[in-house]
């Protein structure tokens, strides 16, 4: 069982580094959408791997940690999707370099219906 423990230690260290990376991404990126991109991906894998690492270090906890991992894998992208949509409807224009913004027309048509 020693080998499981070392795998667990590796996963925990990797997970904490990815969580740190997610926080740095939140801090450095220039607008809400890019922050969500960096934040969601890095924190999802970071939290998953840290929790799974704890599960490997204590094999009796494995089932419960798997539940937590699955929950984070489902809930985290969902909340980032809701946040991105709410930011757009809240009139936060994304930084667009090439002028490609396919979502603008939907948003504009909804607004003109309200008025």
């Amino acid at each position: 069982m020693e080998i499981l423990k070392y795998i667990g230690i590796g996963l925990v260290l990797l997970g904490s580094i990815f969580l740190l990376l997610g926080a740095v991404g939140i801090y450095r990126m220039p607008d809400v959408y890019n922050r969500l991109q960096a934040g969601t991906k890095a924190t999802t894998l970071g939290a998953m791997s840290l929790i799974l690492g704890v599960g490997f270090m204590e094999p009796e906890w494995l089932v419960k940690t798997l539940i937590l991992v699955i929950f984070i894998g489902i809930a985290n992208p969902l909340s980032s999707h809701v946040l991105a949509r709410s930011a757009y409807k809240n009139n936060q224009m994304p930084i667009i370099k090439n002028g490609i913004d396919a979502y603008k027309k939907i948003n504009d048509s909804e607004k003109s219906e309200e008025n």
Partner: peptide, 28 residues
Amino acid sequence: IGMLRFIKGPTASDRVVALDTISIIATA
């Protein structure tokens, strides 16, 4: 670092993004 983004803002959406990240770090 997440807390710094939460304080800096500049809009409510940015703060909620930071809050989301912080709550996942707290869970882990």
